[in-house]
């Protein structure tokens, strides 16, 4: 009698576990098939995460924005984003007087969540492109520096994370981020930001945005893994980080980034 109910209890619990972390269990399965460094015996000190974004591949479909909001419970609406996409429009300017140059025209309606309606004309001499943005996972992050209590931090594997149970909601970090990557979560009233899908990458999965990106414009990279193709990529391409003058040690590398991008 007892053993039966115990068994039922076990089944109930384990099915709940499976439901909650379905992907994880699959990831564990693939681990069993011989990828020892992934998932359960994940060792933080063996990794140093970053991302590579190829502007030449981004088509502004908004898949990453939608995937991120679904994966991480980011509030819908135009004010809260862990990742978003911007559209740059650079009209032909006065090349002899760049200081008088019109500023680039940028838009990001609803963060690109709904994609981008055509707005500009072909052949008007302008330059147009999309720029996906997310937390740069700085290795010398200004947001961590200013947090008064240690509620945001750089993890041993190079991801800047927020401790929701400890955050005061003072919002100093939001001001300290030069890239506008943080917001105050309206429900928890704590700071929130891209976690590089920490719950996924420790299970051997890639981030939700990378999973959903149809062109491979964004790729999760492990800068500590000598076999990661990122090393070859960084060698073969002229890459850039956003606002290098901020000296934040940004680890999101952009290929083909235009100088006008802020």
């Amino acid at each position: 009698m007892t053993s039966k109910s115990d068994r039922r209890e076990f089944l109930r619990k384990s099915s709940k576990f499976l439901l909650l972390s379905g992907a994880a269990s699959v990831a564990y399965a693939s681990v069993a098939e011989g990828q020892p460094e992934k998932a359960p015996n994940y060792r933080m000190h063996d990794h140093w995460w970053g991302m590579v974004i190829d502007i030449d591949l981004c088509i502004g479909c908004g898949n990453c924005v939608r995937a991120d909001k679904a994966e991480n419970g980011v509030p819908l609406g135009p004010k809260y984003f862990r990742t978003w996409v911007e559209r740059y429009h650079i009209p032909p300017g006065d090349l002899q007087h760049p200081e008088k140059e019109e500023l680039p025209v940028v838009d990001s309606e609803n963060g690109g969540f709904d994609g981008f309606k055509e707005k500009y004309k072909k052949g008007d001499g302008s330059k147009n492109f999309f720029v996906p943005k997310l937390c740069n996972q700085c290795s010398h992050s200004p947001c961590t520096q200013v947090c008064p209590v240690g509620a945001t931090f750089e993890s041993p594997d190079g991801v800047v994370l927020v401790d929701r149970e400890y955050c005061l909601g003072c919002r100093y970090c939001i001001h300290a981020c030069p890239y506008g990557c943080r917001y105050l979560h309206p429900e928890t009233e704590t700071a929130d930001k891209c976690s590089l899908c920490y719950h996924r990458i420790v299970r051997g999965l890639t981030t939700a945005c990378c999973e959903a990106c149809p062109t491979g414009a964004r790729r999760l990279v492990d800068l500590k893994d000598p076999n990661d193709p990122v090393h070859e990529f960084l060698k073969m391409h002229k890459v850039h980080v956003l606002k290098p003058q901020m000296a934040t040690g940004a680890k999101v590398y952009y290929n083909a980034l235009d100088g006008s991008v802020r």
Partner: peptide, 25 residues
């Protein structure tokens, strides 16, 4: 400041675990 915080009940953390690199702490 207290009124502005998202979690005023946690404000004591500022004294318990002050982050030395933070001007606010």
């Amino acid at each position: 400041l207290q009124l502005h915080l998202g979690h005023p009940e946690r404000s004591l953390e500022m004294y318990l675990t002050p982050h030395t690199s933070s001007a606010m702490a």
